[in-house]
């Protein structure tokens, strides 16, 4: 028995000595000396506390978002001009994309809103709430004005689309369901408890790393692939993957105004149907749910813009 105790004591001593070797250093003080104990007129330096982005700048983003949507509606409904819309798209890509680096965007805000609705402890900023609801509100009256010329992701794809090909109707419709699957998946991952919560939309956003000009190589490659594909297939992300596009499609069904092919002016020539890269013109009428406000149909129309003036002069 006493031998056992001796072994234990020996072990304790050994571990103690090992501990001492591993940590020869001992804390010199037990308490932090303060200005008084240091003396000599010493002043404790301030710990730098950098402030986040100015609040009014965040509000400016929301104001700009609303203004851009207003301009988009005005260009499409009143001016019916594609050039102006291209200018708006380029501006949005520059500001919301490259300058603001793709955050905050309504697509990602789906998740924040979902979490805020399900988790009582989650703090959702007013800016995010506004960013989520504004485009939906506009969609109820004017269709997907956000998609055309405002959304940085959409505008970027719109700008690279130079040789559009028509996607077969059946394939287009089948792929269109993907975005609802993605929406459900995003909501599913967002409502998980905090530890497992994941914002998949933001994680697999193909363009945000392009806007930031840094990021995981595979995401950069994915973004580049979407852009190359987008040179020929109109807005592949918007039409087949964007979960917010799915929401906007639902709400824009209710809208009463938007891209319109005026009945008493039309020629039945079908040029607008050919010009629409998104298959959004059916039976010579723009389908609100699919129309992405690109104004290509106006550009293709022989009765719109410069051609009308030519005919008047002749």
């Amino acid at each position: 028995m006493s031998r056992l105790w001796a072994v234990v004591a020996l072990l304790c001593a050994l571990t103690g000595s090992v501990w001492a070797q591993a940590l020869p250093y001992e804390r010199p003080v037990d308490r932090a000396p303060q200005e008084k104990s240091i003396g000599g007129g010493y002043k404790t330096p301030d710990v730098q506390k950098p402030l986040p982005r100015k609040g009014w700048l965040e509000i400016t983003d929301v104001v700009l978002l609303a203004a851009a949507m207003g301009v988009s509606v005005w260009i499409v409904v009143k001016r019916r001009n594609r050039r102006w819309l291209m200018a708006l798209s380029a501006t949005s890509v520059a500001y919301f994309g490259f300058y603001r680096e793709g955050c905050v965007c309504p697509i990602g805000s789906i998740q924040n809103v979902t979490v805020a609705l399900t988790d009582g402890h989650y703090h959702i900023p007013m800016v995010v709430t506004a960013t989520f609801f504004l485009p939906l509100l506009v969609a109820v009256f004017y269709g997907r004005a956000f998609c055309g010329g405002v959304c940085a992701l959409g505008s970027l794809q719109e700008l690279v689309l130079i040789r559009p090909v028509q996607v077969p109707k059946k394939l287009d419709r089948a792929l269109g369901w993907l975005k609802y699957v993605y929406l459900l998946a995003a909501i599913g991952f967002a409502v998980l408890p905090l530890a497992q919560r994941d914002f998949v939309i933001c994680r697999f956003d193909p363009f945000v790393s392009l806007f930031r000009r840094s990021g995981f190589a595979h995401m950069l490659a994915l973004g580049a692939a979407f852009l190359v594909l987008g040179m020929f297939v109109g807005r592949p992300y918007c039409r087949y993957l964007c979960p917010y596009g799915g929401l906007l499609a639902w709400f824009s069904r209710l809208s009463s105004r938007g891209v319109s092919i005026t009945p008493n002016k039309e020629l039945d020539c079908g040029l607008c149907t050919d010009a629409c890269p998104y298959g959004a013109i059916e039976k010579m009428r723009a389908v609100r749910a699919n129309c992405l406000y690109c104004a290509r149909c106006y550009e293709a129309c022989p009765r719109e813009g410069p051609l009308v003036q030519l005919r008047g002069q002749a």
Partner: peptide, 20 residues
């Protein structure tokens, strides 16, 4: 941006159907 701006436009097709 320059590449996209400089892209030649696809020629506009003339309507095949007659005007009403």
């Amino acid at each position: 941006a320059a590449f996209l701006v400089e892209q030649p436009k696809a020629p506009r097709r003339i309507p095949e159907k007659p005007q009403k």
